[in-house]
């Protein structure tokens, strides 16, 4: 952000008088108090996260001790049937996320290219604003839109088209045993996730592409390279760690997205989806859909255990993202 209007108008009030005088009351107490308040607030950010981790572990302890790691290898989530498993949800999370990233990352990259190299700054600002607005739309709206618009479209148009052609014979496209017409499916959820993470990856990619030294790009064009060649042979190498970081940020978002997925993925908690057109579930959407159904202490504890797992997974990706973004800042010498 560069919303800065520096104004150096002389401050109403003190310095003039207070300056020469020996430290008076507010000076002696003001600074330490200010410092401590600021410190406490600063630390609270960190404390908040450790509290979260602690509370989640404490509250999922029942489930952890009872189910242990077999929670991760048990497929079905069916508390009434006595099966507490996270594998179906983990698989669904992985599948929707992969679909989202496969679609979003290339799109984000070329849009970032468009914004940095191909259009004049004014046009870039308009396009950028549009993409950024996409990021501002709350996930519940994406969910509703998906439910009322995308699900019927996928079910009536896309799924039949694929099923009737040779594509329907391919491994990940061939309908599995849970197939319900393809409307509520991994693919539908993944598509909406792609749209949702697109703005984030675009914004970060654009920022790192802007950090590529101008002279290096000029040298690339000076060697007779096309825009695309300069991007993928030179700029992308420079910006690689930043792009990787951006991808992890997007990945973290896709993994943890709840509402949109809860609407669209179909809520099938019992098996690992065999096809992109099969319904499934993700950790986040399973928690959202099953929390109010939970009756026993173990049910709730197991759901919190799921939350802990999701937290741990997103932590890993966020930390990776931060490490790569830091590396990007170091190699390009800029601030991202």
């Amino acid at each position: 952000m560069s919303t800065l209007d520096i104004d150096v108008r002389p401050q109403a009030g003190p310095p003039r008088g207070a300056a020469k005088a020996a430290p008076r009351g507010h000076r002696r107490f003001g600074d330490p108090v200010f410092r401590v308040v600021a410190l406490v607030c600063g630390l609270s950010v960190a404390i908040a996260m450790f509290t979260l981790a602690g509370v989640l572990i404490y509250n999922s302890w029942t489930a952890i001790s009872e189910l242990g790691l077999s929670f991760l290898t048990t497929v079905a989530w069916s508390p009434n049937g006595g099966s507490y498993g996270a594998l179906a949800a983990l698989a669904g999370t992985a599948m929707t996320t992969v679909v989202a990233m496969v679609i979003a990352v290339p799109l984000a990259l070329v849009i970032a290219l468009l914004l940095t190299e191909l259009v004049p700054p004014r046009v870039a600002r308009v396009i950028g604003t549009g993409i950024e607005m996409l990021a501002a739309i709350p996930s519940i709206i994406f969910g509703m839109w998906g439910l009322f618009v995308l699900v019927p479209f996928m079910q009536e148009r896309v799924a039949p088209l694929v099923m009737d052609s040779w594509l329907g014979e391919l491994p990940l496209l061939r309908p599995g045993p849970m197939f319900q017409g393809g409307g509520f499916s991994i693919l539908t959820a993944g598509l909406v996730l792609a749209v949702m993470v697109l703005p984030f990856i675009t914004a970060f990619s654009r920022d790192v592409l802007l950090m590529v030294p101008r002279v290096t790009k000029e040298a690339g064009y000076g060697m007779g390279s096309t825009t695309w060649e300069v991007l993928h042979k030179i700029s992308l190498r420079y910006a690689l760690s930043g792009i990787v970081g951006a991808t992890f940020i997007g990945l973290g978002r896709a993994l943890g997205e709840t509402m949109a997925v809860a609407y669209l993925v179909g809520g099938s908690f019992l098996s690992v989806p065999q096809s992109l057109f099969d319904p499934g579930t993700t950790i986040a959407s399973l928690i959202a859909l099953q929390f109010n159904e939970a009756t026993t202490k173990l049910d709730i504890s197991a759901l919190i255990y799921m939350g802990l797992i999701l937290f741990a997974i997103t932590m890993v990706f966020q930390v990776l993202a931060q490490i790569w973004l830091r590396r990007a800042r170091r190699t390009t010498g800029g601030r991202a």
Binding site: P213, V215, T216, E218, A219, G220, G222, M223, I234, R237
Partner: peptide, 11 residues
């Protein structure tokens, strides 16, 4: 061809 003010080796 062109040589620039600052050395500009590609990464």
């Amino acid at each position: 061809g062109m040589i620039f003010q600052k050395p500009s080796p590609f990464p």
